[in-house]
Computed example of a mutant assay.
Amino acid sequence: MSYKDAAYSTKLGIIPPDYPTTIWSTERLTAIQHAILEAIRKNQTGAAKPKFNSCTFRPGYLVISCGCDDTANWLKEAVPKLKPWKDAQLKIVHEADIPRPQIFVGHFPELDSTSNEDIISLLDGQNEGLNTNDWRVLNRVRKGTVVEITIAIDPISAEVIKTSNNWLNYGFGKTQLRPKSEGPIDPPKVTEKNSEPSRNRALRKREL
Score class of each variant (00 low, 15 high):
residue 48 A to S: 10
residue 39 A to G: 09
residue 17 P to G: 02
residue 31 A to N: 05
residue 165 N to A: 10
residue 19 Y to T: 04
residue 143 K to V: 06
residue 67 G to T: 00
residue 192 E to K: 02
residue 38 E to P: 02
residue 66 C to L: 04
residue 179 P to L: 08
residue 180 K to Q: 13
residue 2 S to L: 06
residue 169 N to Y: 14
residue 166 N to T: 05
residue 102 Q to I: 04
residue 19 Y to E: 08
residue 199 R to V: 00
residue 5 D to F: 06
residue 101 P to Y: 15
residue 33 Q to F: 11
residue 37 L to K: 07
residue 155 P to L: 13
residue 130 L to C: 05
residue 31 A to K: 11
residue 177 L to I: 06
residue 71 T to P: 00
residue 48 A to D: 07
residue 60 G to L: 08
residue 165 N to C: 05
residue 183 G to S: 03
residue 193 K to S: 15
residue 32 I to Y: 07
residue 69 D to S: 13
residue 164 S to K: 15
residue 65 S to D: 14
residue 167 W to Y: 09
residue 199 R to M: 02
residue 202 A to I: 00
residue 199 R to F: 04
residue 13 G to H: 12
residue 203 L to G: 01
residue 80 P to V: 03
residue 131 N to L: 12
residue 169 N to L: 15
residue 28 R to E: 01
residue 93 V to H: 00
residue 34 H to G: 10
residue 207 E to P: 01
residue 67 G to M: 08
residue 192 E to N: 15
residue 81 K to M: 11
residue 115 S to K: 06
residue 40 I to P: 03
residue 135 W to V: 15
residue 63 V to Y: 06
residue 26 T to H: 10
residue 119 I to N: 04
residue 48 A to W: 06
residue 59 P to Y: 05
residue 146 V to I: 08
residue 192 E to G: 06
residue 164 S to M: 11
residue 118 D to K: 12
residue 136 R to A: 13
residue 68 C to K: 15
residue 64 I to T: 00
residue 33 Q to C: 08
residue 64 I to M: 06
residue 74 W to T: 01
residue 89 Q to F: 11
residue 12 L to T: 01
residue 173 G to A: 02
residue 13 G to Y: 05
residue 76 K to Q: 13
residue 42 K to R: 13
residue 192 E to W: 13
residue 85 W to G: 02
residue 56 T to C: 14
residue 176 Q to K: 12
residue 151 I to P: 15
residue 149 I to K: 04
residue 2 S to I: 02
residue 91 K to L: 07
residue 143 K to L: 12
residue 117 E to I: 15
residue 6 A to M: 10
residue 12 L to P: 01
residue 100 R to S: 14
residue 53 N to Y: 09
residue 174 K to E: 06
residue 36 I to E: 02
residue 54 S to M: 07
residue 126 Q to S: 05
residue 146 V to Y: 11
residue 71 T to Y: 12
residue 46 G to F: 08
residue 171 G to W: 03
residue 107 H to G: 08
residue 5 D to L: 09
residue 64 I to C: 03
residue 124 D to P: 11
residue 27 E to P: 02
residue 78 A to W: 06
residue 178 R to D: 02
residue 167 W to R: 10
residue 154 D to C: 07
residue 194 N to S: 11
residue 183 G to T: 00
residue 151 I to K: 04
residue 198 S to E: 10
residue 7 A to L: 10
residue 174 K to S: 03
residue 200 N to Y: 03
residue 81 K to V: 15
residue 86 K to I: 11
residue 81 K to Y: 14
residue 69 D to P: 01
residue 198 S to Q: 11
residue 125 G to C: 08
residue 191 T to V: 00
residue 186 D to T: 06
residue 58 R to K: 07
residue 131 N to Y: 09
residue 164 S to W: 14
residue 203 L to I: 04
residue 181 S to Y: 10
residue 153 I to S: 03
residue 108 F to R: 13
residue 68 C to V: 03
residue 67 G to F: 03
residue 124 D to H: 11
residue 89 Q to I: 12
